[in-house]
Amino acid sequence: MSERVTLASVADEAGVSLSTISKVLNGRADVSPDTRDRVERLLHERGYVRRGTGRAEAHAELIELVFHELDPIWSMALIGGVEAVAKEHGLSVVLTVNGSRHEPDPDWIDGVIRRRPVGVVLVFSELALEYRERLQARAIPFVIVDPAGDPSPEVPSVGSANWSGGLAATRHLIELGHRRIAAITGPDDMMCSHARLDGYRSAMTSAGLPIDPDWVRWGDFHLDGGRDRARELLALPEAQRPTAIFAGSDLQALGVMDAARAAGLAVPAELSIVGYDDIPFTRWVTPPLTTVHQPLRRMGEEAARLAIRLNREPAASTPRMDLATSLVVRESTAPPPVE
């Protein structure tokens, strides 16, 4: 069936003109929400996918990279990865900041449809079904770079091995001789927080070590959250106070260092600390931070490559990739003090 016949059929069924269908397809704002929803639903139900005679006709020569916030530290690694791959393919990168950590706001989808990029890379935990359907109807591929969540099985994604990272960090502390090990993970509504914490729990359990409920704290992945949760941990009675803390992000680990200094504890002689991410300056802090390396730049690279590949040839199944994490041992960890 030709594109015009398909659009004419949808227009007839929706009770609108072909020009209204065109406005919806191109993300124009001068269409009522009810009409837009009705047309979008019919386009999806009829399996309409826009097709062009070539990429240059159908898409602008760019990749759109979407964050909910620009962290000046780890965001740059992802941006660098996407930008490097885009350059290899003669593409530019458009950077958009929009939405919450879970998904972009509704106004974003109209803009990306107007821009018609070769592909979209989103640093979110999820993409709503409605947005997926609208992008798929216009043959705009999308990939979630997922350092934080667990996207739906139908969503192409690039993530990292969060559970293995938490396991490796905790095992390192156990091998040094620590028995009272605390964990400050991320927000309770993010899957990576749970995965890293599950890795911690698995390491402790397999070593036959008890986990005091007071040793598990939920943070926010930011410095202040790490500092505040560490103050609570270090205020525990001496016999219960941890000798080591696994922080679910490097920023939280730096907050733990600050809390340790304020409490008069030497790192690592009196408190060992392990972070997560391996952001660039962790090797320059005092002491240099032992951490779990999360390959953020490569995650950006692989997501961009996947988006470009899906633009050229849709995949038969949903591609998902989890990149390995690795422990980087520096000077913030040591055997526990002798009691």
Rank of each mutant, 00 (worst) to 15 (best):
S2D: 14
T6V: 14
A8G: 14
V16H: 14
S19N: 14
N26E: 08
A29K: 10
V31Q: 09
R38A: 15
G47K: 07
R51V: 14
R51F: 14
T53P: 12
G54L: 08
E64C: 13
E69R: 04
L78C: 04
A84F: 10
V85H: 07
G99T: 06
W108Q: 03
R115E: 14
V118Q: 09
V121C: 11
E130I: 01
E133T: 01
L135K: 02
L135Y: 09
A137L: 04
I144S: 05
P153W: 12
E154P: 00
E154D: 15
E154I: 06
S157L: 03
L167E: 12
A168S: 12
I181F: 15
A182R: 05
I184Y: 12
D189K: 01
A195E: 14
A203T: 06
T205V: 10
A207S: 13
I211N: 08
P213M: 07
W218N: 00
D224V: 15
G225Y: 08
G225M: 07
A239T: 14
Q240N: 14
A247F: 13
D250P: 04
L265M: 04
A266M: 00
A269D: 14
A269G: 00
S272F: 11
I273S: 02
G275L: 05
I279T: 10
T286Q: 07
P287Q: 03
L289R: 06
L289W: 09
L289H: 08
T290I: 06
T290A: 05
T291E: 02
R298I: 10
L306R: 04
P319S: 08
L327F: 13
E331A: 10
